[in-house]
């Protein structure tokens, strides 16, 4: 009871914050409500949403789960897949190659955690350095151009107001993961092992295998995010995933996932991603100096967690 009320309280807080933000904007900056702004928010949400979903799954699975390498994976996948194209990989194979590479990098994280028994924070801190460093070192820091032009509409085009990559990647994967989490044995396993790992083991859940799969999934999602950046910018940049590890963690926690694992859902995470991007856009739109954005998001994270601690105590 107590454990389920925790994320719910946080989602309530998030809901109130949404209303407050929209209300303030309606009153003071009505020009914000134009189709182009909505399009822009969705456009900038895709990458964060994809890696946050992976982050959320890893955190949900418990065992001190955390994936600090999400941003580094996005950077390295972008670089490696473009280097492959330059080395002669046919252009039409770029999308599956990018996603697959992401899965491989995620597999690396998963093996370090499940086979070598490294704590997730240590393993992914190591691969944050390793993957991120490789992305820079392999290119000398420069971008790798040459993304096939037929990919650009996917990165820059929209259907109505909704960017293609949001439609094709974000919506399906969030729905799919939500279904898996709520309807399948796998989903119940993830929550069970995040909630109480020993009990889950005793109940016969293949904890290590499920966990390995969670890290692989996080890698696959990072690969998709990398593909989106390629189609969007037209070149691979070695630092494109910069700061995504902290931003995705903030989104996951504000979205109601418990850092201890087991509790939380993926649509809260999507709502949090959209809120964070909207907040940044709104501050930008109101000409508040960008230097206040990092502080505002940091404060948001702390406040949301402090507030739901209090509500939980009231309920208990």
């Amino acid at each position: 009871m107590k454990l389920t009320s925790l994320p719910k309280a946080r989602i309530l807080v998030l809901f109130v914050l949404w209303l407050a933000l929209l209300g303030l904007l309606a009153m003071f900056a009505p020009a914000f409500f134009q189709p182009a702004v909505l399009r822009s928010i969705l456009q900038f949400s895709t990458v964060l949403a994809l890696v946050s979903l992976g982050q959320a799954l890893v955190v949900l699975g418990g065992g001190a789960g955390i994936d600090l390498a999400v941003g580094a994976m996005v950077s390295l996948v972008a670089i490696l897949s473009m280097l492959a194209v330059r080395a002669g990989l046919p252009g039409f194979l770029l999308p599956p190659a990018a996603i697959l590479l992401g899965g491989l990098l995620g597999l690396g994280n998963g093996l370090l955690v499940t086979r070598l028994g490294l704590l997730p924070l240590i393993a992914t801190l190591g691969t944050l350095f390793l993957y991120g460093g490789l992305a820079l070192a392999l290119t000398g820091g420069g971008p790798v151009p040459g993304v096939p032009a037929w990919l650009f509409p996917f990165g820059r085009g929209t259907l109505g107001l909704v960017p293609w990559h949001f439609l094709a990647f974000v919506l399906p994967v969030f729905v799919l993961v939500a279904l898996i989490l709520s309807q399948t044995a796998w989903g119940r396993w993830v929550r069970a092992m995040g909630f109480r790992e020993n009990a889950a083991r005793l109940a016969g859940i293949p904890v290590s295998r499920v966990r390995l799969l969670l890290y692989v999934t996080s890698g696959l999602l990072a690969g998709m995010a990398a593909l989106v950046t390629l189609a969007w910018f037209g070149s691979a940049r070695p630092n494109i995933g910069q700061n995504l590890e902290l931003e995705s963690l903030a989104a996951v926690l504000v979205g109601g996932v418990s850092i201890l694992g087991g509790a939380g859902g993926v649509f809260g995470v999507l709502a949090a991603v959209l809120f964070i991007v909207s907040l940044k856009t709104a501050m930008q739109f109101s000409n508040i100096a960008t230097t206040w954005q990092v502080g505002a998001i940091g404060l948001l994270l702390i406040l949301v967690l402090l507030i739901d601690r209090r509500t939980v105590r009231w309920n208990a």
């Binding site: 963690l249 903030a250 850092i259 502080g295 998001i297 940091g298 404060l299 994270l301 702390i302 967690l305």
Partner: peptide, 14 residues
Amino acid sequence: IVATIGLYGVYRTA
């Protein structure tokens, strides 16, 4: 880990 990620942003703005 959560608190210090948040404070990282706050201190950075400071």
